[in-house]
Every structure is written in structure tokens, then in C-alpha cells.
Design a protein around this nucleic acid. Structure first.
Lengths: 132, 132
DNA sequence: CTTTTCTGTAGGAATGGTTACTATTTTTAC
DNA sequence: GTAAAAATAGTAACCATTCCTACAGAAAAG
């Protein structure tokens, strides 16, 4: 992955595989779910390695760490700003195809002395499966 | 508190005090911070009681549980929809006086099969103290 | 090519926020 | 006042995440 090169990160089997698996999926998996996925191809990888690499990759802005309710954090292979819906019953997280509105950051800047760096819009609701 | 009556919650010293302290403050404290606050007036209260009541009160919609990054959850005595800024360096959370935009919920509804229940807009940035 | 240095790894132990459990006390309805 | 229901304090357990240690392989230097 050229993304790894750009950040001077070594390309290790583990790192590459974690990134590949995360990017191949739209389900916003938890660290543990990703660990199970990666283990199918690399059974000896440790959960600690998964956590460490997810941390590194999100620090570099290659992936996104989602802190979106529930006890576990979730991860998103798509690092660009976009919005999410989360099912309050089963925890499922989907992407939402609303175009991100960066004007709110300007509006917010006028109303606070914080230096605004980014924003996050999240919806809570019931997924199709949980509505019945 | 008439809010407690309305939800058929028993009015205990502990519950009342937790709610009072939380509502008297705009700092969005963590459970542990609130525990320290309440302990000044009721030294024998247990941390478990604080957690249990915060859970109950937020389930009833009397307060708000904020899942806003960082390792700990934060609590807000203002249960109505409003937006927050969080300092990525020190964790401080402030309210933002942007009028909430409920239209985004309608927009989102059109773009997903989820039944939208609520939304949350959060900003990340640097607080005045951390900008230097 | 060989040695040294550096980075990343696995695996397990430790941490810390939160929740669950239990015996006891408090609240509320009658 | 009394009994039933619910809440409490205190402690133990839980579980997601982070930290630690010894080790292995790659990169850099000689």
C-alpha cells in the first residue's frame, strides 16, 4: 500500500492485512471483529497488534476511529469526512450519503473560542432489521 | 424534583443530589468527577450508586449521556438537543450555541432505511488554554 | 558479508472505566 | 405502623484497551 509508504510506516504482513481487511468492508468493525477477520488469514496475529496498528493508522489519518456509542470503538477504512447512522438496538453502523457540510465549522468558529479542527454528525435510529 | 416523580422514580437523597449537582454545572463531568462532587455533601455515597443513577436518569431522558471521545463517558444535565465542542488535547467539553437543525434528520431519513430517532453534531478542536 | 541498531511482533499481564452482586436500608403505598 | 418494592454501600467481577518484555527481522554501518 502506497499509503503506508507515504507515512514512513513499514509494510508488515500484519499491518497490510489489517488495512486490507478494514478497507474491504463497509461494516465499521470493532477491533475484536477485525481481529477475527484477520485471524482467518494470519492465525497467529495477536489482538494487541491489531489494536496497536489501528491506533497508528488512525493517527496517520489513513483510517478513522469512530467513537460512536456502545462500549467498543469502531473503525472505518474510509478516512474522509462522512456521516454515520447507528442502530440503538443492535449497534450496527452504516454510512450516510449526505454531503458533508463544512460551513458548520465556520459557524461554530464564530460562536466559540475553540479552534475548530473537524466535525462529526451522527444519527441514532433503528436499522431495518430492528424495526419489527 | 418533579422530574423524578414524573418517571415514577423514588426520590432518594443520593438521586436528588446527583441530579442537582449535575444540573448546577456546565462542565459535562465524568461519572467519577460527579462522584467527587457529590461526595462533598454525602461522603458515604458509592461510585456504583452514581453510575446506576446516571444510567437511570439518562434512560428516562432527564439527563444526557455523552459518548464523545476519550475513554470516559460524560454527562450533561441539559437533556435537550444541543451541540458540543471537545478539546482534543485536554478533553474539555463546552456547549455550542448553534440552534439545532432538525431538518438534517428528515434529509437523513430519505437516504437510509433506518428509522431516525435523533442526531448529534460534535466538533473537535483546541480549547483556548490548549492553543498556546 | 557481518555486526549493530532499530522497529515491530507476540503473548500475556496490568489497567481502568463500568457493571453486577448481595446483604441491608430506605422509600412509598396502604 | 407495616409490608412490599426499590435503592444503597461495598465489594467483586468484567471487559475493552493499553502496557510490558523478550524476541525476531530489516536496515544501516563498517
Amino acid at each position: 500500500m502506497e499509503q503506508l509508504d507515504q507515512h514512513n510506516l513499514r509494510i508488515t504482513k500484519q499491518r497490510q492485512l489489517i488495512l486490507d481487511e478494514l478497507c474491504s468492508v463497509t461494516s465499521h468493525p470493532t477491533a475484536d471483529e477485525l481481529y477475527q477477520m484477520v485471524r482467518k488469514r494470519l492465525p497467529k496475529i495477536s489482538l494487541g497488534t491489531v489494536y496497536r496498528n489501528l491506533e497508528i493508522l488512525s493517527d496517520c489519518g489513513i483510517i478513522q476511529k469512530l467513537d460512536i456509542g456502545g462500549t467498543q470503538k469502531r473503525f472505518d477504512g474510509n478516512a474522509s469526512t462522512h456521516y454515520h447512522v447507528r442502530c440503538s438496538r443492535c449497534g450496527r453502523v452504516d454510512d450516510l450519503s449526505i454531503p458533508p457540510d463544512f460551513n458548520v465549522e465556520k459557524t461554530a468558529s464564530r460562536l466559540t473560542r475553540f479552534k475548530i479542527l473537524r466535525h462529526r454528525l451522527e444519527f441514532t435510529g433503528l436499522c431495518p432489521d430492528c424495526q419489527s
